[in-house]
Design a protein around this nucleic acid. Structure first.
Length: 505
RNA sequence: GGUGCGGUAGCCAAGUGGCCUAAGGCGAUGGAUUGCAAAUCCAUUAUUCGCGGGUUCGAAUCCCGCCCGCACCUCCA
């Protein structure tokens, strides 16, 4: 079955074929490293991970690149004078407070005033979160996860190129701007036209900032600014690059092509970020396309509301895993599944209930896996993607990553008969190359840690329940059971006696 | 105001002209099991697809109008 994806660029679902058969080049807009990434960021990153894993199971080699934005952009970089507070400075201030209050472990960061240390601190945190959640690309750092600050000279090359071929100019204020009027396609991704942008800018863009630009939508490529905390020498003065250019440059450089297959990001990036990337890349390369497929994940809501710090419903990955939502530790596989299980093209509503539902699903999948492993001794049959269950599962995903349809294949199959466990194990293993929740390979260490660091002897308590039951002392058995449950364990009977396992969420 | 996405059971959600008297999951209810629970298994759980028209032999699916939600147009995944 043909793979079909919704392409934001053409506003329709189209058949996907990589430019070079069997090899997919894909770029995803990654995190800024002035703070911890939140679950909304990760929904977008996991969406990219899903595409990648799916394409791999479908037989493609996928070269995936994701950037780390460590250039300390001004909060108001969008406007020409680059006003506002520097994000790196803001992060430094925050870190100093956190250091004082002990939230930052000793030695984790020496000098918060050094933007490179701030970036390094949050990059490490990002990679840690990403690995827990099974983002494949996080295991390919640093080769596939470049830092913007490592590509300043390449950015300058592209800026020069754009000036040379008439797509950019140095304004009266000394800054370099991209001329949107030089690129007729500008606006096609977001559905904007230059006229609408001109009108839409009324009242929102301050006149003083517009004076240097030829068109209100012209955007910054290089800003000479001696006062900026991170700055580099350039032909246009010491300063810093515009906030769109890094993606154009790193995608071309690391993927090695002017035209790549897929570019992903959150929906908010459609305009202006991706619109600007397209303009820069196409004008620099002279090619008709930058990415052939643009795919965007819709925003995540929390309990029906937009996630925001002021509403108090703002969660980082570590918040959720640490129990801020459910009141107890959450297994990373549960968060992965929760963020993955709804279609990327719709807003997803992140709820405590949803998270607990996901815990049940993940638990069932893991028990199913354990059962098959035991029955087969880990020996899986040889199968390929034409296996009927796999074919149905992959067909669903082929239809614009219809994850619900795919899960609608998985669950009934799972609870049906499994006369050939070796074959079933092979099916599950293939599906798990995509879902990565049963077992969740990258969380293995964490699991051991959790069961090893307990304050009491779970096995002895289970034995206590069995002994009490054997002597019909049910009050005692119930008491121990309650104790275990209160500590976050699920307690179950089995032919081998009572077993207690940690609740996943 | 402009642009885009969406509105299907208590909740999440698939399905885009007949195989739909609408998949799957969660939840709920009844039953089996259990010392009681939990887990597991079995059964039940939308005659109806935001609202109103229309096209058609036939519509959740196509067309027109309306209502509602979300997003972007400003830093944000």
């Amino acid at each position: 079955m043909a793979i079909r994806f919704y392409n934001s660029l053409t506003h329709q679902t189209e058949e996907f074929q990589p430019l070079e058969p069997g090899t997919v080049r894909m770029y995803s807009c990654g995190p800024t490293v002035y703070d911890f990434a939140h679950i909304g960021n990760f929904r977008s990153f996991l969406f990219a991970d899903l595409i990648r894993r799916f394409l791999e199971v479908m037989g493609n080699e996928v070269t995936h690149v994701m950037n780390i934005t460590d250039v300390g952009h001004m909060t108001d970089d969008q406007v020409a004078d680059g006003g506002g507070e520097d994000k790196m400075e803001a992060a430094a201030k925050r870190l100093k407070e956190d250091k004082k209050s002990g939230r930052v472990p000793d030695g984790a960061i020496e000098n918060p005033d050094d933007p490179y240390q701030v970036a390094d601190y949050f990059t490490k945190a990002f990679l840690e979160d990403a690995r827990k959640l099974g983002l494949k690309i996080a295991f390919e750092y640093p080769e596939r996860i470049p830092h913007a600050t490592a590509f300043i000279s390449e950015m300058q090359e592209m800026i020069s190129q754009l000036i040379d071929n008439g797509h950019a100019y140095v304004g009266p204020d000394g800054a370099v701007y991209f001329s949107v009027e030089s690129f007729p396609e500008y606006g096609s991704l977001s559905g904007n036209t230059l006229e609408q942008l001109r009108e839409g800018s009324g009242g929102r863009v301050e006149e003083t900032n517009q004076a240097a630009k030829r068109h209100p939508a012209d955007f910054l490529l290089w800003k000479p600014d001696q006062s900026h905390i991170m700055k580099w020498d350039s032909p246009w003065g010491t300063g810093y690059p515009g906030w769109h250019i890094e993606c154009s440059v790193m995608a071309r450089k690391i993927l090695g092509r002017d035209i790549i297959d897929i570019h992903t990001g959150g929906e908010d990036l459609i305009f202006p970020h991706h619109e600007c990337e397209i303009a820069q890349s196409c004008c620099a390369s002279g090619k008709e396309h930058f990415a052939r497929f643009w795919m965007h994940a819709r925003f995540l809501m929390v309990e029906g509301e937009k996630m925001s710090k002021s509403k108090g419903n703002f969660y980082t990955v570590r918040d959720v895993l640490g129990g801020k939502v459910t009141g107890r530790e959450v297994h990373p596989a549960v968060l992965r599944y929760e963020l993955l299980r709804s279609h990327y093209g719709s807003n997803m509503n992140f709820t405590e209930k949803g998270l607990k539902d996901s815990a049940t699903a993940v638990r069932k999948l893991n028990e199913f896996n354990t059962m098959l492993e035991q029955k087969t001794g880990g020996q899986a049959a040889e199968i390929d993607n034409s296996h009927p269950v796999l074919a149905d599962f992959l067909n669903a995903l082929s239809d614009n990553l219809n994850i619900s349809g795919a899960l609608g294949v998985l669950f009934p199959w799972m609870s049906g008969p499994h006369d050939n466990p070796q074959e079933s194990l092979a099916v599950l293993r293939t599906i798990n190359r995509i879902l990565d929740v049963a077992p969740m390979e990258h969380a293995a260490d964490l699991e051991e840690e959790a069961s090893g660091g307990d304050e009491f002897d779970v096995k002895a308590l289970c034995k206590g329940i069995d002994d009490a039951r054997a002597s019909k002392d049910y009050a005692k058995a119930d008491e121990i059971r309650n104790q275990l449950q209160a500590a976050g364990y699920e307690v179950r009977n089995s032919p081998e006696g009572t077993v207690a396992t940690r609740q996943l969420a």
